[in-house]
Write a protein that binds this DNA or RNA. Sequence first.
DNA 1: AGGATATTGAGACTCTGTCTCATTCGTGCT
DNA 2: AGCACGAATGAGACAGAGTCTCAATATCCT
Lengths: 150, 150
Amino acid sequence: MATPTPITSALDRAGYRLTAPRQALAALIADQDGHFTAAGLVAAARSRRLGVGRATVFRTLEVLEAIGAIERLDLPGGEHAYVGCKPAHHHHVVCSRCGRTSEIRDADLQRVVRHVARQTGYRVDEHRLELFGLCPACLAGDARPKARKS
Amino acid sequence: MATPTPITSALDRAGYRLTAPRQALAALIADQDGHFTAAGLVAAARSRRLGVGRATVFRTLEVLEAIGAIERLDLPGGEHAYVGCKPAHHHHVVCSRCGRTSEIRDADLQRVVRHVARQTGYRVDEHRLELFGLCPACLAGDARPKARKS
DNA sequence: AGGATATTGAGACTCTGTCTCATTCGTGCT
DNA sequence: AGCACGAATGAGACAGAGTCTCAATATCCT
């Protein structure tokens, strides 16, 4: 029923069609608190009988990443995950216990990039920073943070 | 033939046996200039008739990563690759054209990590920084850098 | 409403990586 | 040197992620 989410409007804005599978996936993604995986979405779609095929999930994730509505990240174990995010460049901290993620605005990384460029002679075009640790809620001894979407 | 490489001695030091397959793989890895992939090693081992099975390649990579002789990195496309490296904590710049990698010593990243911790309230335990760009040789218009291991 | 076109689901397919298991190899002990 | 035990190995089965094809369908524009 076209519950509008940041994702659906981003799709619309980028000139993609607002189909039922995409809306269903957008809703599933909007429900996610921390990061989520392609396999997880496939499973969720199947268990809720959304009639969304595996191929569509992967294609949609590809589109969403292309328009910057989600970002792909590589977990330490080598798994791939995604997080919904805003279009500006940024990075994520991932809680290793509960999976929640937080965005980092700028993080003063430009100086690091410049430093590296100077040190190695490379022209650095792209970078990726991923941080892992414990979120405030888990730190406080509360293994299952209560806030869902704030 | 036991051509000794940093990798073979690291294996030895860590109490692992210096078997023929491991020496062969160590030699293959020592030949790599930039990063290399598991699949690439498997193919190289097969094409050179080293008699090293796929399982052994993966097991050896696992061991080498465990003892810190190589490091696993995640390329932008989602592929996994490895680079030979020294045990100290560090990061890599990967040349997007020729695949060569360079190590970055410290990169002043601690301040960034502290900054993030302060900003988000997370306790940051682990981080990963990967940079991509053009190496000096490729920048100079020389698509095929000549230096091998310096 | 109608047509061009983007999108879809199903399933085959490829590729990476893991696991099992019988066999071989290396090492320490006698 | 001979032996016994455990580590390491190769082959191949297996599992899971992700891609691709193709015919069918839904969507948007006019």
